[in-house]
Amino acid sequence: MARTDYQTSLSELRGDVLYMSEVVAERLRMGLDTLDRKDDDLAREVIEGDDEINEMYLDLEQDCIDLIALQQPVASDLRFIAASFKIITDLERIGDLAVNLGEYTLDAEQDLFPDVDVQRLGDVTLEMLDDAMETYANEDADNCFDVADRDDELDAMCEAASELVMRDLIQSDRLDEEGEVESTMQDVSRLLLTIRDLERVGDHAVNIAARTLYMVENDDELLY
């Protein structure tokens, strides 16, 4: 095979993007654990670990730029690099959302809505992320659509969870209790933001699947 160094660089890029996705998925898992256990130490670890993800992102972005500038990729190679360039952006954003979960944990004071199953929402998003990255790793166009389909289910789950919070808030007498209003509103806001952030993780997973579909099939059907 010709252009051996170039082919090696492409393989390394693929491996590095997959490694970044593993780190990001781990941080997201940790972020969900911090919420579950109200583990402040773990939350701080997630927050401080964001620099590592940002550095990974910048390194991989530079790798993509170098490949484009120095190797002039075309056809499937070009689509692979272009897709990777976009996917690392989604991964970096998911890392930011994991940080949000850590910050919510540090700020949270009480668990007001035990009926809202944040962990279940988190599990769905993690599965979507894992599956999206598997499509990328295996160049599996078929399962890209499956990831996109599951986002509809996640959106419905998140919408139902948000409604549950609002209905419970309206029907309860928490806001009538003196001195509780401000802290209650802050906790409600944090919970709604948590639900929203997990829904956005799902969106990023769909983006990754969409870029993979473009990469493999030159098909932009899932791109917005």
Binding site: M1, A2, R3, Y6, Q7, P73, V74, A75, S76, D77, L78, R79, N218
Partner: peptide, 19 residues
């Protein structure tokens, strides 16, 4: 041709996998 050629032989040629 340069983004999504139909032919695998063309793909291999323009990406430098042979030739």
């Amino acid at each position: 041709i340069f983004e999504n050629p139909d032919s695998q032989r063309v793909e291999d040629y323009i990406t430098g996998k042979f030739g």
